[in-house]
Simulated scan of single mutants.
Amino acid sequence: MTSAPPIHLPTEIVVQIVAYVAANESAQASLFTCCLVSRQWYSCAITSLYENPRIDTGASFKGFTNTICPPIGARKSKWNLGALVRRLDLSTLVHHSSPSLTARLMGRVKDNLEVLIAPRASFASNSLPALSKCSKLQLLDLSLVATPVPFEDLKKSLSNLQGLHTLRLPQSTSITGSDSFSIPWSPKIRRLQFSGHFSAAPMRSFPWPPSLTNLTLKNCDDLSLANLSSLMCSPSLSRTLKRLTISGQNRRLSSESISSILALIPELSFLSIPGDMVDGTFFELLCHIGIPTLKVLEFGYPAVDPAVYFTTEGLLKALEYGLPNLSAVGFAEVFCSDDETLDDDAVDNFLLDRMEKSNSLQPSIGNVQSGVYYV
């Protein structure tokens, strides 16, 4: 008995099949199988296999690095597979790599890398030369990095990355002087997560990225009133910043610190703050100062205590007199579960009534719906 001849599919059809496979969350094993079918299937699937590798175990990391940057003396692929990598997420790795291996890996994937999420323990200063050559990098997440990386050296390595628009600084960042201030930022940074230790005095003249519109403060060692006021007092920041998020994961945060934001950044469209850091004084200041540009106010996860220290009446008064164009209020679900002091239905009804009376408001702001939502 003779076997039937293999069926040849047009390359266009194979490409469509591979695209369908790649859209699946558990696509990596299937894409690898596609590469084994034939040379035609290999050429269609190899890019999808490597552009966003799933590296979530020590074994997968070892297999990936042995292929991308094999050890000395090992057989090397004739293809530059590192150039296919566009997104590299190493966030699940802890002790699976070393600073030298991470630096060598980054050197191999630098050509087309667009997103890098760095590992906690093996990203260090020796990775910066390779990082500076990732000319297509758009998002750099160093928020997990625990090894101290000099801020001046990091800034130098990023200054020529023309496409970088999102940066999350390491939690080990330390800014105690102005030596780094003259080094230019990457010119297109719009989103910045600021973390680490800084001294109040030099931060009064801290040069923020000129295109910055979205700032998150997270894992800062000291966000006391004096430090936060120094950090946010830049005139350029008040002109460009539209979205501000202050995470509950900051030390020495207080209600006084949160209230100071209202006077320092008067033209925000989005503000997210820990819900347990807000009291009646915050809403009294809102009524007095007013932020007509604010569209979304979010009471995020608590810094210390899963309880609210303001009343629904205080919030509604601020909505009426200090926030004339606010369309949405967000609450961390922990504040709405069993707390009878917070009437989120009353807030929702107020906002929806306002929207019905005004033709100028849109039904949604970005990904946030008008009215009350939960985070």
Rank of each mutant, 00 (worst) to 15 (best):
L164I: 10
D141R: 03
T341C: 04
F32V: 09
F198Y: 11
P6Y: 04
F335G: 00
G58K: 05
S3I: 07
D343G: 03
A146T: 15
R75M: 04
Y50I: 07
N325W: 00
L158Q: 06
F282S: 00
F123R: 12
A29H: 10
K357G: 13
L237T: 09
N219L: 09
G73H: 04
L90D: 11
D221Y: 01
A201M: 04
V18N: 00
S229F: 06
V15C: 02
N325H: 11
V296Q: 03
C134Q: 09
G63P: 00
E256F: 15
S257Q: 10
E114C: 08
A27K: 15
I117Q: 07
L154H: 06
Y374A: 01
I189H: 02
E284W: 06
T166S: 12
N112K: 11
R39A: 05
Q162S: 14
P324G: 15
G371C: 10
H8P: 01
L212E: 09
T102V: 04
S43Q: 15
M355I: 11
K110G: 06
G73M: 07
K317Y: 02
S100D: 13
S247T: 08
A27F: 05
F206S: 08
G163V: 06
V115G: 00
D348L: 12
A83P: 07
L244K: 06
N325K: 04
A346S: 14
A307I: 10
P148D: 02
A263N: 03
L101Q: 15
S48A: 15
L342N: 08
C233S: 15
E51C: 14
D343P: 03
A332P: 00
R191Q: 10
A318P: 07
N80I: 14
S272A: 14
D221L: 12
V18I: 15
V18D: 00
S182V: 12
A83L: 05
P71N: 10
Q162T: 12
N250L: 03
A201D: 13
S30K: 15
D338G: 15
L164T: 11
S178A: 15
L268K: 04
R251M: 10
A22R: 12
L154A: 10
N214A: 09
F123K: 10
I365M: 00
I189F: 05
R120G: 00
A332S: 14
N325V: 01
M232H: 01
V109G: 00
G275N: 05
S360K: 12
T102L: 11
H288Q: 14
P170A: 04
D343Q: 03
L113Q: 05
A4F: 13
G82W: 06
T240R: 02
L158G: 06
P6Q: 04
L116G: 12
L81R: 07
T47M: 09
S143K: 08
A23F: 02
Y301M: 00
V329F: 09
Q138Y: 01
F64H: 01
S97P: 01
L297M: 11
I117W: 06
S159R: 09
L137T: 09
R87I: 08
D338M: 11
S358D: 15
A307L: 11
F61L: 15
P184R: 13
R204C: 09
G196H: 02
I261P: 14
C220I: 04
L90N: 12
F350Q: 07
S43H: 13
Q162I: 05
P209N: 14
L253R: 07
L164Y: 08
E25F: 03
T47E: 14
T166K: 08
S48L: 13
A19E: 14
